[in-house]
Computed example of a mutant assay.
Amino acid sequence: MKTLGTHNYYVYILTNKNKTVLYTGVTNDLKARLYFHTHPDALSKHFTTRYRCYYLIHFEHFQDVNLAIQREKQIKGWRREKKERMIKEYNPEWKFLNGEIE
């Protein structure tokens, strides 16, 4: 069992190369999840595979899984315009952040 405060959860947003599709997810291992998204099974029918959403443009860190899930649901409920405003505040140039995750 992990000590309180040592948990890591991430809410993240991926996009495709043309930045026309947004995908929001939650994970406890962002680097591994990005690898999973960029190296899908050949027969994968996942949303991120179908729409080629492999590029990380936003993420938030949480230590409580319930807060992370709550935030993911909140973001998923937003219209695209609101998501775009949030992304621009965090990442004004919509730079792909995949290489910055350790």
Rank of each mutant, 00 (worst) to 15 (best):
M1F: 10
K2T: 10
K2N: 10
T3R: 12
T3K: 12
T3G: 10
L4R: 11
L4W: 06
L4I: 11
G5D: 06
T6I: 08
N8Q: 08
N8D: 10
N8F: 09
Y9E: 02
Y9A: 05
Y10G: 05
Y10V: 05
Y10P: 05
V11R: 06
Y12R: 00
I13P: 02
I13T: 03
L14Y: 08
T15W: 05
T15H: 09
N16R: 13
N16F: 03
N16L: 10
N16Q: 06
K17L: 05
K17A: 01
N18H: 03
K19P: 01
K19E: 04
T20H: 06
V21R: 03
V21E: 07
L22V: 01
Y23T: 13
G25I: 06
V26I: 07
V26T: 07
N28W: 08
D29K: 09
L30E: 04
K31T: 11
A32P: 08
R33Y: 02
R33S: 07
R33C: 06
R33L: 06
L34G: 12
Y35K: 06
Y35M: 04
F36R: 13
H37R: 00
H37Y: 11
H39K: 05
H39F: 00
H39Y: 01
P40K: 01
L43T: 09
L43S: 08
S44E: 01
K45F: 00
H46T: 02
H46R: 03
H46N: 07
F47C: 01
T48D: 14
T48S: 14
T49V: 13
R50Y: 13
R50Q: 14
Y51P: 00
R52P: 01
C53P: 10
C53T: 15
Y55I: 04
H58D: 14
H58W: 03
H58A: 15
F59C: 08
E60F: 14
E60A: 15
E60H: 14
E60D: 15
H61N: 13
H61T: 14
F62C: 14
F62N: 14
Q63D: 14
D64I: 14
V65L: 04
N66H: 09
A68E: 06
I69T: 05
Q70C: 13
R71V: 02
R71P: 03
E72N: 04
K73A: 05
Q74I: 03
Q74F: 15
Q74V: 03
I75L: 15
I75W: 15
I75R: 13
I75K: 13
K76C: 08
K76L: 11
G77L: 06
W78Q: 15
K82W: 00
K82L: 12
K82H: 11
K83E: 13
R85V: 15
R85I: 15
M86K: 15
K88H: 02
K88F: 00
N91S: 06
P92L: 07
P92K: 08
P92M: 09
K95W: 02
F96W: 07
F96Y: 13
L97M: 12
L97H: 09
L97K: 07
N98I: 08
G99S: 09
E100L: 10
E100N: 07
E100W: 08
I101D: 11
